Computed example of a mutant assay.
Amino acid sequence: MQYAKIAGATDAAIDVTDEKLELAAELGADLVIDARKHDPGEVLQRYGGAHAAIALAVDEAAFSAAYAGLRRGGKLVMVALPAHGTIQVPIFDTVLNGTSVIGSIVGTRQDLAEVFQLHAAGRTRVIYEARPLASVNESIDDVLRGAIRARIVFDMAAGR
């Protein structure tokens, strides 16, 4: 989301947890959609539809909702890897609306170099929680339950 803002985009954040919705608002999301209460595709369409939707949730329903929010000529970029690994793409809507569905392995070395430059210039924030290495099993459980705010960094010296 931070990179979309740097590029001048209007962005929307969609989630099903209060903490992540609050984080999106804190980071400056133009639109925050609680998918427990509202249909994300319908909300995005009310705002004209998304030029691009980046699917980061490991839930196939989230991919469908992101697709439903695309405007004519929009692109669904699939990044996350849902367990079953399939989505249904409506052929009629895809052809008539000229939408695209593409995959992304996240980034290249050049992309990473640019990310580091933006961060070094103070244009982005890394949201993380530091934990001792001894908490690795509990931390993995927290990630699987979606109970972390953003990222976990293990402190190798903590707890010695």
Rank of each mutant, 00 (worst) to 15 (best):
A130E: 15
K75I: 10
L144Q: 12
A66G: 09
A50N: 05
I148C: 07
V136N: 01
I152T: 11
S139L: 12
R149W: 06
F63W: 07
L27G: 01
L21M: 08
I14W: 00
L81G: 04
F116H: 03
I102W: 01
K20Y: 03
L21A: 02
L76A: 04
A13I: 02
D142L: 15
L118M: 13
P90Y: 02
G107R: 05
G103S: 08
N137V: 03
R160M: 12
M78C: 15
F63S: 01
A121C: 06
R46Q: 15
Y47P: 03
F116Y: 14
P132M: 02
A120C: 09
V126T: 13
A35M: 14
I105E: 01
F92G: 04
A147V: 00
V77W: 00
E60Q: 12
V43E: 15
I105A: 04
E22G: 13
L76D: 03
A13T: 00
A62F: 07
A83I: 00
V32I: 04
R123A: 14
R125F: 01
D141T: 13
D141G: 12
R72M: 15
L31C: 12
L23K: 02
R125K: 15
I105L: 04
A25V: 11
P82T: 09
R131M: 15
L76Q: 05
D15W: 07
L31D: 11
Q2F: 11
L96N: 13
V43F: 10
S100Q: 08
M156F: 13
D18A: 14
I33D: 05
A66T: 03
H119D: 15
L56A: 10
T17W: 03
G74N: 02
L27I: 08
R125C: 06
E138C: 04
T10S: 07
A12N: 09
S139I: 09
I54T: 02
Q2N: 12
D59E: 09
G74Q: 02
S64M: 10
I127A: 02
E42Y: 01
A68C: 06
R151Q: 12
E138F: 09
F63Y: 13
R109T: 09
R125L: 12
A150M: 12
L133F: 14
L96H: 02
E19N: 06
I87Q: 10
I140A: 09
A13E: 08
A57S: 11
K75N: 04
K20G: 08
G146P: 05
T10N: 06
D15H: 04
A12V: 12
G98R: 00
V89N: 07
L31H: 07
A62D: 01
A4E: 00
F92W: 04
M78W: 01
L70W: 09
K20L: 02
T124D: 06
V115F: 05
N137E: 14
M156T: 09
K5I: 05
G159W: 06
M78H: 02
V43G: 02
